[in-house]
Simulated assay, not measured.
Amino acid sequence: MTAATIRAVRAGWLALLLCVVALALAPFARADVAVPVLTGRVVDQTGTLSADAVARLDQKLKAFEARKGSQIAVLIVPTTQPEAIEQFSIRVAEAWKIGRKKIDDGAILLVAKNDRKLRIEVGYGLEGALPDVTAKRIIDEIITPKFKTGDFDGGIEAGVDRMIGVIDGEPLPTPQPQHEWAAPESMDELTGWAIPLLFGTLVLNGFLKAALGRVAASGLTGIIVGAVAMLFGLVWYIALVAGFAAFLLALVIDLFGGPTISSGRRGGSGGTWTGGSSGSSWSSGSSDSGFSGGGGSFGGGGASGSW
Rank of each mutant, 00 (worst) to 15 (best):
W96F: 09
V92L: 11
A95E: 08
F147I: 09
G150V: 06
I120C: 06
D153S: 07
L197H: 06
P78W: 00
W193D: 08
I108F: 03
K97F: 03
G169A: 15
R91H: 14
D161L: 01
E127T: 14
K146M: 13
D188T: 15
R119K: 07
K101R: 12
V122H: 03
E189P: 01
G155M: 07
V74M: 06
L202K: 08
W96N: 04
Q178G: 02
D151R: 09
D151I: 08
A158F: 00
I103M: 02
V77M: 04
E65K: 05
K117Q: 15
I142W: 00
K146Q: 15
P196V: 13
K117M: 15
K97D: 01
T191W: 05
A66T: 04
V77N: 02
M187N: 12
G123R: 01
R119N: 07
Q87D: 14
I76D: 04
P171V: 12
I195F: 11
M163W: 01
Q71I: 03
P184D: 12
K102P: 10
T201R: 01
L197K: 06
G159D: 04
P196N: 12
E83K: 08
E157S: 14
V203A: 13
V166S: 05
A158C: 05
A194Q: 05
A84N: 10
S89P: 06
L198E: 06
P175N: 06
F88L: 13
G192F: 10
K148T: 14
P184L: 14
L118M: 14
F152G: 05
L202V: 12
G125E: 00
D104S: 07
E121R: 03
A93F: 01
R119Q: 10
G128L: 15
V92K: 05
G200I: 12
E127K: 12
I167E: 00
P184V: 14
I138W: 00
A135E: 03
A129I: 06
E65P: 00
Q87F: 09
V133E: 13
G125M: 01
K146S: 13
E185A: 15
